[in-house]
Design a protein around this nucleic acid. Structure first.
Lengths: 205, 205, 205, 205
DNA sequence: GATGAATGAGAATTCATTCAT
DNA sequence: TATGAATGAATTCTCATTCAT
C-alpha cells in the first residue's frame, strides 16, 4: 500500500506555501521549486496536485474568494439602521492579514484583470455582496428607518463599491493623515446621512 | 555627424508603443522586441533611451500619474455645493479609454503593489486629490452649504476613496444591473445627503 | 501468504499493454503509468516484472522476433519451383496487423539501430531466413528446377533482402499506384525469371 | 550595424552540428545545448534559426531527402540494358557515410513513421525514383532490350523496393556472409534474368 | 546613434524510478 | 506482492540585455 495522504490537506498546504512565497518574493520571482520547498516537498510533487503554476494560482484565488463569500454570507439580517451600520463598520475594519493579501492580490492577479472571465468572477462576488446589502436596505425601508425615496437596488451597488474603495485605500496606503478609526466613523456618518435624508434638491442632472 | 533626434520625443514614442503593446498582449507577453517594433526602431535602440524594461515601465507609470495630477489640478474652486457635486460627477464619468487603462494598470503594476515606494507614490496622488477636495469642502463649510460639524480633513480622504471605489468598479465591471448614469446619480445623492445632514444620532461607536 | 501469480503470464500481459500503448500514442509519449494502467496494475507493479522501461521494450522486441522466427521455421521443404514461389508469395502477403507493427517497430527501435547489438540481433534473423531459403534453393538446383550456375548462398541473402524491401514498402506506403496483388505477382515473375535464366551475358562488371 | 551573418550558412552549420550530435549520442540524448555547443554558438542562438528541436530535425530530414532526390535526378537516360544495369549497380554501391546516416535515420525519424505526413513524404521520394526507372524501362522495351511482356509501371515500383531492400540490409548489417560486391553482382544477375525472360509458366496465381 | 545577432541565466514541466505502507 | 505518492534530474524554450559592426 502506498503512502496514505489527505489530498485536500496537501493541496491546502501547497496553496499556503504559494501564498507565503508570493508574499515574500512576489509572484513572478516565485518558482514552483520555491513553493515546493516551502511546503517541504519535492518540485515534482507539486504537479501531483496542480497541473501548472497557473492552475495552482487560480486555485489560490478560488480559495480566497470562497473565504470572502463565506464571511459576508454569515451576516445576520439587521433589525435596525444602527445594527446595519455596525455590520458595515465591521467590514471597514481591516486587519494586517487583509492588508498583506490585498497587495499580493494585485501582484498575482494583475494580468488577469485583462481577462473577461476573471473580472466577471470578481464582479459576481461584489454582486452577491450588493444583493445582501439590498436585502438589508429593503428591510430598513419597510421599517421606515431609511428614506423611502431611495432606489435600494442601485444604492446597494453604490455602497458596495463605496466600501470597497475605502477598504482598498485602507489596505494599500499606510501613511494616511487620518487614522483608521476616524476614517471608519466618517464613512459611516456619510452613509447614514445619505440614507436618512430625503432626496436632495441640489441635484439637477 | 550624429543624427539629430529629440531625445524626449523618442522616449514618448517608446512609452506609447509600450502602452499599445501592454494593452494588446499583456505586460508579461510583451517583449522589448515588440515595443521596439511598434515604435519602429530596433530592439537595441530601446536601450539607448531606457536602461531596462523595468525602468521603461516605471516611466510609463510616471507619465500616467502626471497626467492624472494635471487633470485634477485644473479643477476650479467651487462657488456652491451644486457646483462641487458637478465636479464630482465629472470624475465619476469614465470613458472607454479610462476603462482600458485601468485594466492594464493592474496588469502592469500589480507586482509593484508589494513595494512601498509604489504605493507611496500612489498614495500621494490620492492625498493631493483629497487636499483639493478639502479646499472645496472648507469653502462650502464657510459658506454654510454643508454641515459645520463635518471634519472636512477626514471627509476629503473618505470621499476620495469613495469616488475611487465607484470609478474602479465602473471601469472593471461591465455587466452591472444599474447603468452608469444611475450609479452616478445615486452616488451623488448619497454624498449630498451625507454632507448636508447634521451628525446622525444613530452612531454610538 | 503471497498471492500466487503466474510470473510469465503477467510479463506477457504487460508486454501486450506496452504494445497497445506504443501503437496508440507512440513510444515517446507512452509512460510507464500508461502501460501499467492498460495492463490493469499499478505503476510500481511494473517494476516487479521488468527492471526498466528499456528492458521491457527489449523484451517486447524479443517477443516479436521469436514470433517471426517461428513463422518462417514452419515452412515445409518445397518439392518444386512452383511450390517455392508460392511460399515466397505468402511472405509477400502482408495484413493490416503487420503494417501497423512495422510502423511501431521503427518508432520503438529507431534508436536501437545505432547499437551494434540490436542490428546483429536483426541480422541473425534475416540470416536464418536466408539459410532457410538456401536449403530450398539447393534442393531446387539439385532437381534442376533452377539454373545450376546460381550461387545459392549469396542468392538466398539477396532474395531475403529483396523480399524485405517489397514487404517494407508494402507496409509503409499506402498510396502506391499498383495494387498489392500486382506488386506481388510482378515480384514473383521477376524472381522466377532471374532464377530460371542462365547467367546473363550483359554483366561485365 | 549588427553582425552580418549568412543565415543559410548558419542554418546549415546548425544542421550539421545536429547530425554530428545525433550520430554521436543518439537523437534522444542530444540536447539543444549539445547542438549549439557543437556549432560553436549559444543555446539561444539555435532558436534564432529554428523554432524548436522538432523543426530543426524536420529541416534535417528535408536536407537529406533533397540530397537524395538530386542524386537520382542526375541519372542520364540509358541507351542499353547494360548501361541501365550499371546505373542500378551504382545505386547498390553504398559507402560508409550512407551506412552511418541510415542508422541515424531510423533513430531520428522512427517516431515519424507512425505519422501519415512523414511516410507520404518518403513514399513520394520512392515514387519519383520509380518514375525514373519507369522511363528507362520503357526505353529499353522500345529498343527490345527487355521482354515486351513486362508491365514497366509496376516493375519500376518493384525494382525500387527491391533496391531499397538490398541497400538497407547493406547499410544495416555488417557481418554478412557474402561480401558487398558479390551481393551486388548477384542482385544484378537476378534482375537481368527477370527482365530478359519472357513470362514464366510457373506462376499460376 | 542605430542595429539586430548573440547570449545564457532561468523557468516550467515531465516521467522513469524509488520506497514507505 | 502490490500500490501509487514522492522524487528530482533533465530538457526545452524564453527573453532581457549586451555588443560587434
Amino acid at each position: 500500500m502506498p503512502k496514505i495522504v489527505n489530498k485536500q490537506e496537501m493541496r491546502e498546504k501547497l496553496l499556503y506555501a504559494a501564498l507565503e512565497c508570493y508574499y515574500a518574493k512576489g509572484y513572478r520571482n516565485t518558482t514552483m521549486s520555491d513553493i515546493a520547498k516551502t511546503a517541504g516537498v519535492a518540485k515534482g510533487t507539486t504537479y501531483l496536485y496542480f497541473d501548472s503554476k497557473d492552475q495552482l494560482t487560480e486555485s489560490l484565488l478560488e480559495m480566497f474568494l470562497c473565504r470572502f463569500e463565506q464571511q459576508t454570507s454569515v451576516i445576520p439580517t439587521c433589525q435596525s439602521l444602527e445594527e446595519f451600520i455596525e455590520v458595515l463598520g465591521n467590514i471597514l475594519q481591516v486587519d494586517e492579514t487583509q492588508k498583506k493579501y490585498t497587495r499580493i492580490f494585485f501582484d498575482i492577479y494583475g494580468p488577469s484583470f485583462s481577462e473577461a472571465g476573471f473580472t466577471r468572477r470578481l464582479e459576481n462576488l461584489y454582486k452577491k455582496f450588493a444583493q445582501l446589502l439590498h436585502r438589508h436596505l429593503k428591510q430598513l425601508q419597510l421599517k421606515e428607518e431609511i428614506s423611502p425615496e431611495l432606489d435600494t437596488q442601485v444604492l446597494s451597488e453604490v455602497i458596495s463599491s463605496f466600501l470597497d474603495g475605502i477598504v482598498l485605500h485602507q489596505c494599500l496606503f499606510d501613511g494616511r493623515t487620518a487614522n483608521e478609526k476616524t476614517i471608519k466613523e466618517t464613512t459611516l456618518q456619510l452613509l447614514v446621512g445619505g440614507l436618512l435624508k430625503p432626496k436632495s434638491t441640489v441635484l439637477t442632472n
